[in-house]
């Protein structure tokens, strides 16, 4: 028996240890907002309230970094700043430019913070409220013209429906399924973001590359009898399967 806290090694039926599983990791980028309060803080918080009243959804979905660089340790109202933000539902992920040793910040909840951020420039806060995010179960993007070579269509929120062909050298990326009512000659990447039940359907399969939930197949690897046919592609475990439609 080894260390008491070791996790048990998975074994198969014959009690042989199974080969260690691979961990797959993919990247996804978000943009964090940096708020830099200016004195007087009372006025700044009021301005923030006005902004929230105009576009509540804007702050709701964003990770926020608080930059206290423009404030001093004995700024009026400093101790109430973080509680005020948290009360308004602002999702603080990091606080910069303030010292936890300061008397004013003693009661603050300090978030753990992240490494490696990159400044991206000014962000304009929209005047009207943002439209509500599309219902993921029903979101779809319809394109009713051919997708030309070099064009890259990206719709992570749902299905993409193209009434026309997709040219060689064009790329379609969808969080859901991709439907091409024409010839698919370019690249189609469906189920981006972890949807392994997404499908790729087309009237004529001449794609350069198809992928569902990260598993891909190039033209070379497609079974010859499926090329040029009306095809449904789906994910079966870790490999793509091309089935005829009709």
């Amino acid at each position: 028996m080894s260390e008491p806290n070791a996790l048990p090694v998975p074994h198969d039926d014959a009690s042989r240890p199974l080969p260690a599983q691979q961990i797959r990791a993919r990247g996804r980028s978000f943009m964090a907002l940096v708020l830099s309060p200016e004195p007087p803080l009372v006025g700044w918080v009021a301005a923030l309230d006005a902004q929230i009243a105009k576009s509540a959804a804007f702050f709701d979905a964003k990770p926020v970094i608080l930059d206290c660089g423009l404030l001093t340790a004995d700024e009026d109202g400093l101790s109430d700043l973080v509680p005020a933000l948290l009360e308004r539902g602002i999702r603080l992920i990091e606080i910069e430019g303030a010292d936890p040793q300061w008397p004013a910040t003693a009661d603050w909840e300090w978030p753990r913070g992240y490494s490696g951020g990159r400044a991206v420039g000014a962000v304009e806060i929209p005047e009207e409220a943002l439209p509500p995010p599309p219902d993921p179960a029903r979101a779809s993007l319809v394109i009713d013209e051919p997708v030309r070579s070099g064009r890259s269509v990206s719709f992570p929120e749902g299905d993409v429906i193209i009434i026309g062909s997709v040219a060689s050298g064009a790329e379609i990326t969808a969080g859901g399924s991709i439907h091409v009512y024409g010839t698919l000659r370019g690249r189609a990447l469906a189920g981006v973001g972890g949807n392994s039940s997404a499908r790729i359907l087309c009237r004529r399969m001449n794609a350069e590359l198809i992928a569902i939930d990260g598993f891909y197949m190039t033209a070379d690897d497609m079974p010859a009898e499926r090329i040029g046919q009306a095809i449904q592609a789906r994910l079966d475990g870790e490999s793509l399967v091309l089935l005829p439609i009709d």
């Binding site: 030309r148 070579s149 070099g150 064009r151 040219a167 060689s168 050298g169």
Partner: peptide, 11 residues
């Protein structure tokens, strides 16, 4: 293929 690209740019 290049013409297709150009058409895309024209549009």
């Amino acid at each position: 293929r290049d013409s297709d690209r150009i058409i895309g740019l024209l549009d």
